[in-house]
Design a protein around this nucleic acid. Structure first.
Length: 410
RNA sequence: CGGAGUGUAGUUCAUUGGUAGAACGCUCGGUUCGGGACCGAGAAGUAGUGGGUUCGAUUCCCACCACUCCGACCA
């Protein structure tokens, strides 16, 4: 991609409504644009990152045996009334109506819709277990949106739902799901605390949150350095966990954290409410045992920026950076530009994802923008480097630079 | 929803009871080219919306709207 053609330029000053580091940097870098409170456009740069994160999640969900669906955003009121959540879910539903005045919920989560599918498709234990997931736009009528992408009212979420004949089968899957989640965060370069928590209005007795320690985090998590135990403070209060680890009796530390994902044991809450049953081997009709597993992708993107930036800009992990290489030409010399162009084409042929800053801007502007955007590798082409038949290679995460022969570029 | 704050150029802000100005950005010309260069010229505004006070309101008052923060709440 030629930067001169990319929609969404960098901003020298952050919009005044931006408070958190991730909001400021994502807005300044041209990744996102705010339309209304808690409602954002992902500009091309931001959408590339979004899709890379979604790609990693999709791979791990597929490994977990998930099948990808695309369920509707609009769901009829009657379905939501069957579980009672039309009135009770918190935050309340965004509701809209059609021209016949029939009401619909804009889906904040999809237990109702997916369980409805299960009750109509699943007949026998032979149809179980299965897992359905989607990566889809969600709507939550939050009292207040905060921190840019950290809490929005419309956001893409990966939601996975698993369906089992019994609790034992569920538990085995639940463990694997937690491992898959841990792998996702690992691939995103995030250190996480897997914290016990309460189920909120989604429900279930055993839930775990995947908490990323960060100063801007709204949650407070108690954690044990010795054994890895962690628990959300709200839940710790319920369980009367004080300052000692209930597992190993070590002293608990605490940290602010961003909840980047959560997994729930749903039991038969939704299958009973909606009549999603199957006939077991013993010939008896039983409710399906369920779990659900969510990750907000935009929040995850902001979380990564919160924990991976410096005073100059974002430092994207290689796995999700919008491009692999930020190619910068320095100097207005026609030869330099021509050579940079050749290197750009050459890198593209090698299947590299390259952002080529081909603008007629001063070196300072280009280098500052490269730091702000945060692509893992920066290639600088200038008269100096061309004298050595080289480009200057620098990692965004490191200070040192080195010259690499153009013929050796991979 | 309770409390507080802010709405003026694309952005960040200044200013004034007599209908506006800077910086950055943008356009054009020229110089420059390794850390947000410089010179010159230029475009850009219904001062959030509505009402009130006033000879006159962007400025004062009221209402509404929007955004932000704190609180409560929480996927």
């Amino acid at each position: 991609m030629r930067y001169s053609k990319l929609f969404g330029k960098t901003l020298r000053t952050a919009p005044k409504e931006a408070e958190s580091a991730s909001h400021k940097l994502l807005a300044r870098g041209g990744f996102i644009d705010q339309l209304a409170a808690g409602i954002y456009t992902f500009l091309p740069l931001g959408w590339r990152v979004h899709n890379k994160i979604a790609g990693i999640i999709r791979e791990e969900m597929d490994h977990l045996g998930g099948q990808e669906f695309s369920m509707p955003v609009l769901a009829p009121k009657a379905l939501w009334q069957e579980t009672g959540r039309w009135e009770t879910i918190d935050p309340p539903l965004f509701v809209t109506r059609d021209r016949h005045d029939k009401e619909y919920a804009l889906g904040p989560t999809h237990e109702e819709v997916v369980t409805d599918l299960a009750r109509r498709f699943v007949k026998s234990y032979k149809d179980l277990p299965f897992a359905a997931y989607q990566i889809q736009d969600k709507f939550r009528n939050e009292l207040r949106a905060t921190g840019g992408l950290l809490r929005t009212r419309e956001f893409f979420m990966k939601d996975l739902y698993s369906f089992h004949t019994d609790e034992k089968d569920f538990q085995e899957y639940f463990k694997k799901a937690i491992e898959a989640y841990s792998k996702i965060f690992d691939r995103l370069g995030l250190k996480i605390l897997v914290s016990q928590a309460s189920g909120g209005s989604i429900g279930g007795d055993t839930t775990y949150e995947f908490q990323v320690p960060a100063a801007v985090g709204e949650d407070i998590v108690f954690f044990c350095k010795a054994c890895g135990f962690a628990i959300n403070r709200q839940f710790a209060d319920e369980k009367a966990v004080k300052d000692k680890c209930p597992e190993c009796k070590s002293r608990l530390d605490q940290t602010n954290a961003i909840e980047a994902g959560q997994v729930f044991s749903l039991g038969t809450k939704y299958s009973k409410a909606l009549g999603a049953t199957f006939v077991d081997k013993d010939g008896k009709e039983k409710p399906i045992v369920m779990g659900c597993y969510g990750i907000g992708i935009g929040r995850l993107m902001a979380t990564i920026v919160e924990v991976s930036h410096d005073e100059k800009g974002i430092v994207w992990p290689e796995t999700i950076a919008p491009f692999d290489i930020h190619l910068v030409s320095i100097g207005n010399d026609g030869q330099v530009n021509q050579k940079a162009d050749e290197i750009y084409e050459r890198l593209l042929k090698k299947d590299k994802e390259v952002l080529f800053d081909d603008r007629e801007e001063s070196p300072g502007v280009k280098l500052a923008d490269a730091d702000l955007i945060g692509i893992p590798q920066r290639f600088v082409v200038s008269e100096k480097t061309l004298a050595e038949d080289s480009v200057e290679v620098k990692k965004r995460s490191e200070k040192n630079v080195k010259l690499t022969k153009i013929s050796d570029l991979s």
